[in-house]
Amino acid sequence: MMRPYTPKDNVQKKAYYTDRFWVAPRIPEEPVPEGSDYAEDVAAVKKACKVLNAYIQRGQLVIYVNSEDNVTALKALKEERGYDMLSELSAVDFLAERGGFEVFYQLLNLNAARRLRVKCFVEENHAVESVNPLYRSADWAEREMWDLMGVKVNNHPYLKRLIMPDDWEGHPLRKTYPLEGDEFAQWYEVDKIFGKEARDIIGPENRDPGRIDRYDTERFARLGHEVPRGAPAEMVDKAEETPISYQEEEGVFLIQKLSAENSKVLDKRR
């Protein structure tokens, strides 16, 4: 029997059934209306660098620029058009289809309450220039982007992993990275704390949170039929009944027993 081939370049979950004639509709990309504020934004970017595409999608302007022009475009928008807050910066992985990442910069003009998104395409193994001198918020966002997506950033003051541990391998948000982690990820804490030789003792991760092994006396004790920790499996079925009670029947040494008659129930707020 042969194992069916599964593509490794995109391990994202797929729909198990798609109609043969299904064509996904698209959100309309409207042209930027003449004379609007957004048109002036586009003009300001055009003056500074080349604009590949500009459209309005769901009420927000999207401007595509070349990846080497990202700082120029943001600088024009910040200084001429008042986009003084970088509210989000990240990347989208298109390695499998187009061999690169789409980096987006989500900007906000606080005075006019206007938002736009500057996007650029970065090929794999290419780097974007840091926008940290323009916006301090890019500091952490770019570190996170490097950490999770593996998009390199040039001239960043402190480009180091932010979210994952320093000794982590791989960039988890890439489409090639499985959701449950590779082997390194799955054994990370065991290797680090107990060493690789303890892998056999601790065993692989249980990825099914619903699974309970009643003969696993190390971790589970059947309520009402308790066995000592680590007892052999055959003892489980022969376990004597151990009654469980809310409080011990005979009472506890020096502790008053709760009785329902002597307690008061507060049923509403004073």
Binding site: P172, L179, E180, G181, D182, A185, Q186, N206, R207, P209
Partner: peptide, 10 residues
């Protein structure tokens, strides 16, 4: 207890 709903790499 088990990782719960976060059945992920992290």
């Amino acid at each position: 207890n088990t990782g719960g709903m976060f059945n992920t790499y992290a």
